[in-house]
Every structure is written in structure tokens, then in C-alpha cells.
Nucleic acid binder design. Structure first.
Lengths: 212, 212
DNA sequence: GACTGTGAAGCCATTCACAGCT
DNA sequence: AGCTGTGAATGGCTTCACAGTC
């Protein structure tokens, strides 16, 4: 089993390519070149080809790529050729918005449980499932073989929730709280930090005046 | 004006360091070493020192960094030593959640206008401001000198909204829609794409079985 | 003794440029 | 002729290792 390391940037771009291809297929386009994809998503054609080359040869020289073939291949590479059950902890504003977000479903993610520690939230309906007490987290995770958890609790509670998710058997966490979380090495974690993103913007806005 | 290029990863880490320092200050800690910061945010001590070195010498050899000094320095570097008015377009679930998110205020961002094209939304109160028709976007942006816009509309409407923001004079956009946006080169753009983040997780979960 | 600041080395990702196929 | 696949070159970020300072 040769484990060639794939750059994370490549994985993120594959996800974007797959959405581009989904659109292209929807528009009835049969074949695209690396240049078409590149233009559509804002990268270089060489980058597109290199990214794909990590995983095999999907195109035809002189022609390009078959849209639906490549789309399916990338979905398979990303692990999207199945449905992924997801639990979400934190039924506040952001958690509720995510639980109702339709974009996840179309890509194979199904939020099967929303948890909170505020009894006032229990039973609230969110897109099919209802808000459950956090005490039921372990049971739901284990009964459904859930591997992915989303954290949308305030910063102060985030580490405790992460520990609990890991203990319940979760293998990957998407963290929306503005906190650096400690998890065991085998657990995959990604942070989506709104303030960091805004601050990259303000830094760049400031560059015009400053001199570093 | 020497314009040394700063890696974007460095800017993102600075934002994380600043939050770590905010916490440290709050706990009454006076001095920290690069190793302390590194441990707190999960990077190497050398990385912390290199990141800071792009901007000057903020520490004392043999001692470390003064917490509140360094905190203020980083805030200045990121452009956070002022308040930034922000407009948000798209008063759906996610937009409403963001408009109410308290974390922004503490870091100097104030959402002064929320816009939508659905008359059913007009007038709804969101944390002080109310939802306005998109036709008033230009006026609010210009009257308040707004430079930052947040897009939380569905994918199909995102490019049109981006064009409109740029036309109104917006200089930086935080895009939450799952779409690659075309904007003029001088406009800074950052994408926060929930699906891409989840798909990086599923890719990594799949790595255990697959062999690339 | 402890810790910063930094050139040099090492590593990783992107771009180039062209051979190879249709 | 057109476009992919890929080794080689480039560029950029991170780590190393140590001189400099307190």
C-alpha cells in the first residue's frame, strides 16, 4: 500500500472541481479540458492536471475529460460515493442554520442528530430531526456508526464537547468555535473560524497604507 | 515602501495568536515565550518567531514577549485597532446567525446593514439593525464608508450580489456561498465553503482504506 | 540558563515545458 | 492540431541550528 501524500490544497480544489463538474453536467456539457476547469474555478490548467495526476489518468490526450466520468471519479476519491451521517452539537443560531442547510444533503451529508445542553431547546424540530439532550450523544453516535461531528457551541464549551465526541467514537470534527481544540492524533479536525477570515481581509485592506 | 510579501498562512496564524494572547491577558499572564504560544495554538515555536519576525522585533531575548504589548502589536498589524463597519447580504438562516454572532463585535467588526431581496424579510430586527431591501445597499455602503461585505445568499444569486457590492465600493468580500466569484483584482475575496471543509474530512477518513 | 531573531537548509507545492497520445 | 500526463525547475513556507541578548 503505497501512501503518496496528497497536499491538503489539492483535496480542497478537488471538492471545488467536483462542483464545477456537477454544474457542467447539469448544463449538458460532455467534455471539458483542464483549461475549462481552470477558468471556471480560478486556478491554472497545469494545477488541475497535477491535482488529478495524484490519483490516476482520467483524461484523453487531445480531447479532455468526460464530464460525468471525472465527476464520479472525484466523488469517489473524496469518499462521497456513500451517505455520511453527521452529528451536530450546539443548537444555537449557527447550529440551527447549519442543521437546516440544504447544501449538505445534496453532497451526501445527513445530519441525523442535533444536541444541546439547554433543556429549553430539547424537542425543537430542525429539518426532520429534533434537538436532543447531550446525554444521548454517545447512544446516537454508536447506534448509527457516525464518524463526523460538527461543533457549534461557544468557545468555553468547545473542548469539553470535542472530548465527548472523541470518546463517543467520532473520527473527524468540523469545529466552528473560535478555539484551538486538542484531540488525539488519529482524529481529523478542521477549523472554520469566521474571525480569522475577516481578519485576513482587514490585514489585506491595510496593506495599501503600511510597509512591512 | 518595501513590500515584503507575507504568507497568508502567517496572517491566519497571527489572528489565532492574538486570541491566545487575549485569553492570556485575561488570565493575568504578563509574559509568554514563543514556546508557550506554540503549545497553546498547536504550531512550532520557530514558526511563531518567524511569523512575528516579518513585522519587527517584539520580544526580549532570554525573557519572551510581554502579553499585552504583543497583543496590541498584532491587533495593529491585522488592522484591528479601529472599528470596521460591515454589510451582509442574504438574511436567510446563515445570514441571520452571522448578523447576531457576538464574536464579531468583540474583535472590531460591526454589522451595520443586512440586506435581502425578499420583502417578507424587510424590517425584521437582527441585533440592532433591521433587514433592508437590497436597493438601499449602495446608499448604506457609501454613507458609512463600508469596505467589507459578507455574502450569504444562495449560489445562484452570489455573483450578482458580488458585482453589486463591488459597484457600491466594497473592497473585501467574505463569501459563504458555494460558488467561485469573479471580482476585479483589487478586491480581496475569501471563501468559507462548508462542503469543501466536510469533504476534506471524508477524504481523510477514506485514506485508511485506499492506497494512492 | 533561557529565550529571541535569523540565515541556511530542507521540504513541499506550483509552474514550466515538452513528450506522448488521439 | 489539441490536450493530457509528467519530469524538471522554480518558488515559497517551514524547520533547523546557532549567534546574540538579557
Amino acid at each position: 500500500m503505497k501512501t503518496l501524500k496528497i497536499p491538503e490544497a489539492t483535496v480542497m480544489r478537488l471538492s471545488v472541481y467536483s462542483r464545477f463538474l456537477e454544474q457542467a453536467e447539469h448544463h449538458g456539457i460532455v467534455t471539458v479540458s483542464s483549461g475549462d476547469i481552470a477558468e471556471g474555478v480560478g486556478v491554472s490548467p497545469a494545477q488541475v492536471r497535477k491535482d488529478l495526476a495524484y490519483f490516476g489518468e482520467f483524461g484523453t490526450r487531445g480531447v479532455g475529460y468526460n464530464v460525468s466520468d471525472l465527476y464520479q471519479q472525484i466523488r469517489r476519491i473524496l469518499g462521497l460515493n456513500r451517505e455520511w451521517p453527521v452529528v451536530l452539537v450546539g443548537a444555537g443560531k449557527l447550529g440551527s442554520a447549519l442543521a437546516r442547510y440544504q447544501g449538505f444533503l445534496g453532497r451526501g451529508f445527513r445530519i441525523i442528530g442535533v444536541f444541546d445542553n439547554d433543556p429549553g431547546q430539547f424537542g425543537r424540530k430542525l429539518n426532520g430531526s429534533e434537538v436532543l439532550p447531550i446525554s444521548q450523544l454517545e447512544e446516537v453516535v454508536q447506534k448509527n456508526g457516525v464518524e463526523i461531528g460538527i461543533i457549534t457551541v461557544p468557545a468555553a464549551a468547545a473542548q469539553e464537547v470535542a472530548d465527548r465526541l472523541v470518546n463517543a467514537g467520532i473520527k473527524a470534527i468540523l469545529n466552528f468555535s473560535p478555539r484551538v481544540l486538542n484531540v488525539p492524533g488519529q482524529v481529523v479536525i478542521r477549523n472554520v473560524d469566521f474571525s480569522v477570515n475577516l481578519e485576513v481581509l482587514t490585514f489585506n485592506l491595510g496593506l495599501t497604507n503600511k510597509h512591512f
